[in-house]
């Protein structure tokens, strides 16, 4: 758990620097928001460990983030304001950097695959994105929302 906390703090620090360069938010302004995001994430892991119900950590993290920024939670407005200084794009940049750095790992496995499975995977990803967008679009047009 401790190495996870170190890792989150490191990623947070890197994202604060990215947020500074890319979105002109000074690290001092961004710090409280990032600490809150790290705290929410760590709480998610703790809740997952402690509760007997087995659900993916990502659900607990989302739920806690939603809870502390919802109107029923004391101080929700200051929390939202602080986390609002962290641009979500700045937070995604380090994440995709880790994704990039692990690329070579699966390359050997990839070379063993036939071309058919590559085509099918692209279709699978296209299908899930397009059909969901299409259904959402139909939903919006039927209910008249967003149009």
């Amino acid at each position: 758990m401790l190495d996870k906390i170190y890792t989150f703090i490191l990623i947070g620090a890197i994202a604060i620097i990215g947020n500074w360069i890319g979105y002109d938010v000074s690290p001092i302004v961004a710090l409280p928001g990032m600490l809150i995001i790290v705290a929410i994430t760590v709480s998610g892991f703790i809740v997952e460990k402690l509760l007997p119900v087995k659900l993916p950590v990502v659900i607990w993290v989302s739920f806690i983030a939603l809870l502390v920024t919802s109107p029923i939670f004391p101080g929700n407005e200051s929390i939202s304001k602080a986390t609002g200084h962290i641009n979500f794009m700045a937070l995604a940049t380090p994440i995709l950097a880790y994704a990039g750095l692990s690329f070579g790992k699966d390359l050997k496995e990839f070379k063993k695959l036939g071309w058919r499975i590559v085509v099918v995977s692209l279709i699978v990803y296209t299908g899930t994105f397009l059909l969901a967008s299409l259904v959402a679009e139909i939903g919006f047009r039927v209910t008249g929302k967003f149009h």
């Binding site: 996870k4 890792t7 989150f8 990623i11 947070g12 994202a15 809150i36 995001i37 790290v38 929410i40 994430t41 998610g44 892991f45 950590v57 990502v58 993290v61 989302s62 739920f63 806690i64 983030a65 939603l66 809870l67 502390v68 920024t69 919802s70 109107p71 939670f73 929700n76 929390i79 939202s80 986390t83 962290i86 979500f88 937070l91 995604a92 380090p94 994440i95 880790y98 994704a99 692990s102």
Partner: peptide, 20 residues
Amino acid sequence: NILGISFMLFVAKLGTLMGP
């Protein structure tokens, strides 16, 4: 391994947009 947990921070950030 870091990638596997790092996106939790992103998910937390998106979660804070959901509350309000």
